[in-house]
Design a binder for these strands. Structure first.
Lengths: 213, 213
DNA sequence: ATTCATCTCACACTATTGTGTGAGAGAGTA
DNA sequence: TACTCTCTCACACAATAGTGTGAGATGAAT
């Protein structure tokens, strides 16, 4: 028996989905919520295995809700439910801990199967949305018009320490060089990466995957 | 006739794949390269539709090659080819402009079909890798141990302008408030987000998806 | 009606960053 | 050998960032 919690701010849709889910003997709807805050309230007394969550809700939206739920109930599987196919948000949702992503107009079968898959720990994402997601990733290069320059090892060292919020002095201590040297490396990085300060540098570094370690 | 360019630093594999591809009448191998630099050389004289690219190569690796090729030949479809299933790099590859991602031990059919799909502009990713990719996205939350605090609208305004490398003075001008006000917002953001400077703030903001607009 | 959150601003400092310029040492390469 | 790249450091200065403290105005919520 998989315990399911529904969250959506549209009552009609809430009831419709509930009806669909209850038609399956393996599923039990333990509650319904109209926003994220209610979800957290309900979870206190009614543990659920799978949370069907609308993306757009008042008070506390889907994204914020995911973070809270995952923090307090890490084992709950979260399936996002949405009408639109806004690809750009999908990656963010997964990063935050979502287990899957379904369209609201999914068929009854897809919906039920999705919940069961999620319950078993599988990632749920319709093929159509997979393509969307990849596109949203590859669309980004708007922010990388410039070619990634050659960054030397030492510059990379400095870059990563900057990313860790160290000051120039601290970086110098860490690398056993003078602050002047560190300053020079930063200066060179600014020119190479075509930015004006550390903030811009770290942004590009993240976009370029320089900090993924 | 789809023109294919192969790039891999292993000669044996290069020849093996070549043999497979040439068995299909719809494909033509226009060249083979041992590293990224060679790829760029070959493309100058032998235009290709699809580039089959190994991830690990000497001289100029796959990722760097993608960027260069996409810059000079935006229409070339790039299919990554790799043995390992290192999920974390997949997203970076797509961001850089890769069209798809195939395992080297893919069957002959998958390989050929993948090339044809890519040629038609479809995104190619084996279902197995889709799951990998999603996992790599959701694994990240290592970096978000803290709960995302409530950021006010005004703070978000300031945050985003900081991300655009504006100085406090410029932000103040942009928002028609005094620099003191901007400084206060920053101060409050630092405390809320538990960071010590703008660099750390922008990093978290990116992780939290605060800048995806 | 009072509390609370948000946004606003001031003033006075200190700390850090970023810039301009010049230069030497060592490794590797043409 | 001459050249290029990388890493190193100095010195001086201007520009920004960041901190500590206090406070008024507004609007929404209880």
């Amino acid at each position: 028996m998989i315990r399911v919690l529904l969250a959506d701010d549209h009552l009609i849709l809430l009831q419709g989905i509930r009806a669909i889910l209850e038609s399956d003997p393996g599923l039990e709807v333990v509650g319904t919520a109209g926003n994220g805050r209610e979800v957290l309230e309900i979870l206190k007394t009614a543990p659920a295995d799978v949370l069907l969550l609308d993306l757009q809700m008042p008070e506390m939206d889907g994204l914020e809700t995911i973070t809270h739920v995952k923090k307090e109930y890490p084992d709950v599987k979260i399936l996002m439910l949405t009408t639109n196919d806004e690809g750009s948000i999908i990656t963010t949702l997964f990063k935050s801990g979502a287990t899957g992503y379904l369209l609201k107009n999914s068929s009854q079968e897809v919906l039920i199967q999705g919940i069961k898959d999620a319950y078993e720990g599988k990632k749920v994402l319709s093929p159509h949305l997979t393509a969307k997601m990849i596109e949203s990733l590859s669309e980004k290069p708007k922010s990388l018009p410039g070619l990634k320059p050659r960054i030397t090892q030492r510059e990379l060292d400095v870059l990563r320490l900057i990313a860790r919020e160290l000051t120039t002095q601290q970086i110098a201590d860490e690398l056993f060089v003078s602050t002047n040297t560190v300053a020079t490396h930063k200066r060179n990085l600014f020119v190479k990466m075509d930015v004006t300060n550390s903030v811009g540098m770290i942004r590009k570094a993240m976009d370029w995957g320089l900090l993924d370690d």
